[in-house]
Amino acid sequence: MTNNQKVKTLTYSAFMTAFIIILGFLPGIPIGFIPVPIILQNMGIMMAGGLLGPKYGTISVGAFLALALIGLPVLTGGNGGAASFLGPSGGYRIAWLFTPFLIGFFLKKLKITTSQNWFGELIIVLLFGVIFVDFVGAIWLSFQSNIPLLTSLISNLVFIPGDCIKAILTVVIVRRLRKQGGFELYFRK
């Protein structure tokens, strides 16, 4: 990378971190059939890998998690601190660290960012941004709260519809942003 690209990468990663935090401040979308509104923060996690690739996507999400871990109120609802990593939702936080790497890695490997294959991208986002995260989240919940894994997995199904919607939104938004240019760099071999 040229110096110019390095500095740009630094500012892009910093802005990605800021985005994820902003998404946590936006009001959730209320949906009828599930009592919890759709929160938007994990969309930021799904976007990071799709925009900045595996390496810098991970760095920006890692920075976000670091700020949350030391106690800044950056998680949805003004949460933050080590307790939110050890609590029942700790598994999601840990899975989030790997999501941008997995999404970015496969998008790059399968050269999906440069193709018209938006369905392929959706599959990748669903696999690593939704199923992987909810699965790790469920395993953690089961350990943390002493509930059987199956019960925990089933209770996590409640998030699936909302998460699928967010995965679709993510793909729509990320693909449109990529068209604006500036992100090719992160998916080059």
Partner: peptide, 22 residues
Amino acid sequence: KKIKSVIPILIPLFVSSFRRAD
């Protein structure tokens, strides 16, 4: 409709922010 309403907020936000980053 509710879900779609996120798009016209997020896309301009991201576009203008990455321009700021540039």
